[in-house]
Amino acid sequence: MTRIVWDFDDVDAAATPQAHLDYLERTEAFPPMAAVREHTYAALPPGRGVDVGCGRGRAVADLTALGRPAVGADRSDAMVRSARERFPACEYTTADATALPFEDESLDWYRSERTYLHIADPLRALAEARRVLRPGGTAVVADQDFDSTVMASSDPALTRAVVAALTDSMANGHAGTRMPALFAEAGFTDVTVQALPLAFSSLAPVAPLLIEPAGAAAVAAGAVSEDEVRAWRRGLERLDRQGTFVVAMTMFVTTGRRP
């Protein structure tokens, strides 16, 4: 299956990786994203934990400042280097979600945000989360189901086709809605899920990580033509100029306890 969404394992080879890194930093500042982070922080118990898929390290720095010693883990060397440069007082390590460098039952909490979308074997990653957590430890995973994406458009049918193609192009595009069942299958108890809205009223914040890859995924899948995608994008740009652009999706925050 064609993979369109950025894979930061390859960011070192990208022509302008700093542009990607800068975009991530701007994105994390948007109020909807900050609200999701705050929600996950509130669900974590005291003690030491890991932020899996830590990216540029914002959550690790926040949690450390809140008195929850955190280690950031990311499979991308570029992300880990960037996080260390940005927050040098915090701890980061290069590691895959399915092979974390921690002893059994050594952590109090486990957090992951917008990462399980890119994990092809989420159950294996959750088994690793269960392994590193102490009995009674908490896991919190926040992810979208990209099929929840809706947007203003002059061609709703084409928009639905583009969104479906993007969802299907990802390793685990339905991660958000799959997580409660996967938590239970991995042996977590007291599983809860909350749905948080992510809404944007301008095109710029969502163009690089949603609109552009969605259009590319739809063309690659043969769902639409390049001309159709160009016309679709022009329509979105017109709405943006008029101040009537809107796109929204849902972030699902799943919490469970390691028995």
Rank of each mutant, 00 (worst) to 15 (best):
A43E: 15
P17R: 09
A29V: 11
Y116N: 03
L198C: 06
A217R: 10
G173R: 10
S76K: 10
A207L: 11
M33R: 11
G137H: 07
F102R: 14
R75M: 01
A204H: 07
M170T: 01
L123R: 07
S225Q: 01
I119S: 01
S154T: 03
Q144V: 12
V132H: 06
M170W: 05
F200R: 06
D121N: 05
E185V: 11
V5N: 03
T189H: 01
A59N: 15
R178W: 00
G47D: 00
A99K: 04
V71W: 14
I119P: 04
D22F: 07
A231K: 08
D147Q: 06
E28I: 14
R130Q: 02
T255C: 08
A78E: 11
D145W: 04
L100H: 00
T177N: 10
A70M: 05
A204E: 10
V253M: 13
V11S: 13
A35C: 04
L24S: 05
V11I: 11
E113D: 14
A42C: 03
A164V: 05
D190Y: 09
H118P: 00
D145T: 05
V80P: 10
A89D: 15
A42Y: 04
F200N: 03
R258P: 03
A61D: 09
F252L: 15
G49N: 09
A217D: 00
A207E: 14
D104S: 14
A89W: 05
E103Q: 14
D104C: 08
Y92F: 13
A42G: 05
A29Y: 01
V71G: 05
E237C: 02
A184E: 15
R84P: 09
A13K: 00
V150W: 11
F146Y: 13
P69C: 09
P45W: 08
I4V: 15
S201K: 09
G176S: 14
A218Q: 06
P17F: 11
S82M: 10
L236H: 05
T177Y: 02
V219Y: 07
R160M: 09
P46I: 11
R26A: 03
